[in-house]
């Protein structure tokens, strides 16, 4: 069975190996590994407490692992804080979306990375280039077919889908090569979920690699290229999506199907 594990290293934008993270006696991650190819959508699945969230936090710099290595674009990295991961080109879209309600779409998109005016005097005065940012935001959103009529509107009035799309599109505008999405459709209706999934597909078309955490197997099968399954803090299987059915993935998650690697049964209590 082509499980997609054997990939050429030069094709990988991200490679995390043997990541371990303990909280006291509790092992949240035990030798978890994950690899991500250029322009692919990697699903990350597992039961509650399987270690998905901790792995995401390690990859986005929010949690420092006890051991293990992370390689981005062939260079080893060590994230001490979220900005380290961002600087390495990894964008994480959190479940709470990280949008500021009182600000406009374009202001949210550029938050923390506001472009300064090209006029040297205004630039010296720390004045931002609103016109330029608006134009670029508008262009990018149009390109991604994100249905946001005007980027000047406060995000408060936007629907959940629009907000989610905006948060995801931000990654592209910021030039990120890796986007981590944590349950991006959890709070959305069917139609809005579809918009988000289509957007994820377009991100891939732009050469962006995506790690997608989801409980929805139908959605995963629709949009992901490969899927990594986690159980008890370990990454136990990697599959090409075209080779498996949603039922098989569920089997791997629950342990109904055997893991690829033999997991020692003496693993301490595992939490997410």
């Amino acid at each position: 069975m082509g499980n997609g594990a054997g990939t050429d290293d030069h094709d990988l934008v991200l490679r995390a190996d043997n990541i371990t993270r303990r909280y006291g006696a509790v092992v949240a991650l035990a030798d978890a590994s994950l690899s991500l190819r250029r322009g692919e959508v990697m699903g990350l699945v597992g039961d509650n407490g399987a270690g998905k969230s901790t792995l995401l936090k390690v990859l986005s710099g929010a949690v420092i692992p006890d051991s293990g290595s992370i390689v981005v674009d062939g260079s080893p990295v060590s994230f001490k804080r979220p900005s380290d991961a961002m600087n390495a080109g990894i964008e994480t879209v959190y479940q709470d979306l990280a949008l500021v309600d009182t600000m406009s779409a374009v202001q949210n998109v550029y938050l923390g990375r506001e472009e300064l005016s090209r006029n040297p005097l205004l630039k010296a005065l720390n004045v931002v280039d609103d016109r330029g940012m608006r134009k670029q935001a508008r262009d990018t959103l149009a390109e991604l077919k994100v249905g946001i009529q005007t980027v000047n509107v406060s995000v408060k009035g936007m629907s959940g889908g629009q907000r989610q799309c905006l948060a995801i599109a931000r990654a592209l505008i910021w030039g990120r090569r890796i986007v981590i999405l944590d349950e991006p459709t959890a709070a959305l209706g069917v139609r809005e979920s579809q918009q988000v999934l289509e957007l994820i597909g377009r991100l891939r078309d732009h050469g962006v690699s995506v790690i997608l955490v989801s409980h929805n197997m139908q959605q995963l099968v629709q949009v992901a290229d490969r899927v990594t399954v986690m159980r008890l803090g370990r990454s136990i299987a990697v599959r090409d999506v075209k080779d498996v059915t949603p039922e098989q993935i569920v089997g791997l998650i629950t342990g109904a199907l055997p893991a690829d690697a033999q997991a020692p049964e003496d693993t301490a209590t595992v939490i997410s």
């Binding site: 959190y94 709470d96 990280a98 949008l99 500021v100 009182t102 990375r113």
Partner: peptide, 10 residues
């Protein structure tokens, strides 16, 4: 407006 969001943006 949203300290959590601002922090997440670095």
């Amino acid at each position: 407006g949203n300290a959590v969001a601002a922090k997440a943006r670095g």
